[in-house]
Design a binder for these strands. Structure first.
Length: 519
RNA sequence: GCCCCGAUAGUUCAACGGAUAGAACAACUCCCUUCUAAGGAGUAAAUGAGGGUUCGAUUCCUUCUCGGGGUACCA
């Protein structure tokens, strides 16, 4: 809807108008501030510009699309949609059902979202998990908007940590990993006749199977690709990429190691690619992986989702992207730290000491829906406090239940209305209570919110929206009735409820949160 | 030291440079003979400090204060 109005305004007055949902009912449904911007450039009075714009918008807009377009305050233009427009959208929701809001693009982008990617040296810890729901939903949003999306987990099955894991399992010198799971691995791997390297490789394989289980069964994420770092060594990509950089004079030798001149790309120091003992660093694999994504698999857009503790790596990886002359859109999103609180106290974690809480444990305690929702509802820039006590609370303290309960209520009304034999009517002329209208408008925002969440790569917008929608629905539920209403109103309201239910369904589908039948 | 993120109501979080800064929880008042009260209606309550840019700043720039994270030939 915002797009339609934006296009109209653009046609009328040009520029890059921004249309936003109105904040108060008396301001109509949407507003734009374009008159201020245009007036500034042309050195005119904003109100005069607005008057001119309103006239043209009215000419250009389809008959009956708006109920009114008016100027308010110093030059805001407020739009109120007509009842027919609202009814039309409602019909569309009911007709398109699960497909409502899904876009089809003629030339979809090939997008890769890489997330979680925790090392296969132990179970997935709570701290590693924030990227899971975030990346999953971001990818779902892109897919909903019509792009071709791959969800991917980068498995660091090469490098020093594999050997360290092996040593830890065999209890040799250099054992760094601790925790119960090491004991579990020891039982599985027949330790006696193994070298540390072999034991490490077997252990990684085992741990990887745990990770896959956690990700798919507990977190509810369908990874399309589990990409092996080792494969980049085996097929020569790593060496090839290093050679390429050597040719460009971006690699030099110092103290027996090979360094990449990342300072030429804004990094604060150059980075080692091949250590003096001949081993390649993690970063070498990273560069090869980048090459693989853009040059070989031809993604147009790659989004890496990292924990904020890796922010120091951003400059070198972006530098490598440039140095390798790769084309496409490359984004690195950083997620800030999550503190886990229990009984109001912070649970400190340390993987080295073997003190940590796993994703499995948290999900077992609070359930997948609460886990996903509570991690999703915050902006990635904010450090969040994840309170186990709130998460466990099956009450209004827990936002996920608030949203689910609204969906359940919608489902119940539909069931009861069907039992009562109420005929649906999508002519909604008589729905005009504040609660009816507020709910109707909230439903309409669905498509706008998804589009914005995709453009700004902010999945939390959808979680927030689900709470807004729920609030409107609960208020509606409390105030208005269907079963027992006079049949015209009942039928019209039923169509509103069915449309709401459909929106909850589609929305929860993207969020990966279930919509139960009862609670 | 340098780099990244944050600082908004008692608490946890919103606010794409716009109109009267929103929710939820906690507190206090009300509302179940009704499609589930896991709900609704209401009251009280906030932009860390100082400069600047702008018609307009929580938002942009700048200085400072306080938190969190990073600063390896580890991953």
């Amino acid at each position: 809807m915002i797009k339609t109005i934006t296009d109209l305004v653009k046609g009328a007055i040009g520029g890059e108008p921004i249309v936003m949902p109105a904040e108060r009912p008396e301001y109509g449904h949407y507003f734009t501030n374009i008159a201020f911007l245009t007036a500034k450039e042309a050195r005119q009075n904003p109100r005069e510009v607005a008057e001119e714009a309103v006239k043209k918008i009215k000419e250009l807009s389809p008959e009956g699309f708006f109920e009114k377009v008016e100027i308010a305050g110093p030059g805001f233009i407020n739009f109120t949609l007509s009842q027919e427009t609202l009814a039309g959208e409602l019909k569309k929701i009911l007709k398109e059902g699960d497909k409502y809001g899904r876009e089809e693009k003629n030339n979809p982008q090939k997008i890769q979202v890489e997330f979680i990617s925790a090392n296969p040296t132990g179970p997935l810890t709570f701290g590693n998990g924030r990227g899971g729901p975030f990346g999953d939903v971001l990818a779902n949003i892109f897919a909903y908007l019509g792009d071709d999306v791959t969800k991917e987990y980068y498995v660091n099955d090469a490098g020093g940590q594999v050997l360290k894991l092996g040593k830890s399992v065999l209890k040799e010198d250099g054992a760094e990993y601790k925790g119960e799971y090491i004991e579990d691995l020891r039982k599985i791997i027949d330790a006696n006749k193994k070298e540390a390297k072999e034991a490490g490789e077997e252990a990684v394989k085992e741990v990887l199977s745990w990770l896959k289980k956690t990700v798919s069964e507990n977190m509810g994420i369908d990874m399309d690709v589990w990409f092996s770092e080792k494969s980049l060594y085996e097929n020569g990509t790593v060496d090839m990429v290093i050679d390429k950089l050597k040719e460009k004079g971006l690699i030099y030798e110092r103290e027996g190691a090979l360094w990449f001149k990342s300072t030429e790309y804004g990094d604060d120091k150059d980075r080692v690619v091949v250590k003096s003992d001949g081993e390649k660093t993690y970063f070498a694999g990273d560069m090869a992986y980048l090459w693989n994504k853009f040059a070989e698999r031809k993604f147009n857009k790659v989004i890496n989702i990292w924990g904020a503790d890796h922010h120091g790596d951003v400059a070198r990886v972006k530098g490598a992207f440039e140095a390798l002359d790769l084309n496409g859109d490359f984004e690195i999103l950083l997620l800030q730290f999550v503190r886990l609180l229990k009984e109001g106290k912070e649970m400190k974690m340390s993987k080295r000491k073997g003190v940590y809480v796993t994703v499995d444990e948290v999900i077992e305690e609070i359930g997948r829906d609460a886990y996903r929702f509570l991690l999703l509802m915050y902006s990635p820039d904010s450090h969040i406090d994840f309170d186990m006590n709130v998460a466990k609370e099956k009450s209004m303290e827990n936002p996920v239940y608030y949203a689910q309960y609204a969906g359940v209520r919608a489902g119940n009304i539909i069931k009861k209305a069907d039992e009562a034999g109420i005929a649906i009517s999508s002519n909604i002329k008589e729905l005009n209570t504040p609660e009816d209208l507020a709910l109707m408008f909230e439903i309409l925002r669905f498509k706008d919110v998804i589009r914005m969440a995709g453009e700004q790569m902010k999945p939390e917008m959808l979680a927030r929206y689900s709470l807004d929608l729920s609030k409107k629905f609960h208020a509606f539920y409390d105030k208005e009735r269907i079963v027992g209403e006079e049949s015209n109103i009942a039928g019209q309201r039923l169509s509103l409820v069915k449309a709401s239910y459909q929106i909850f369904k589609n929305l929860f589908g993207i969020l990966g949160v279930s919509l139960p039948e009862k609670m």
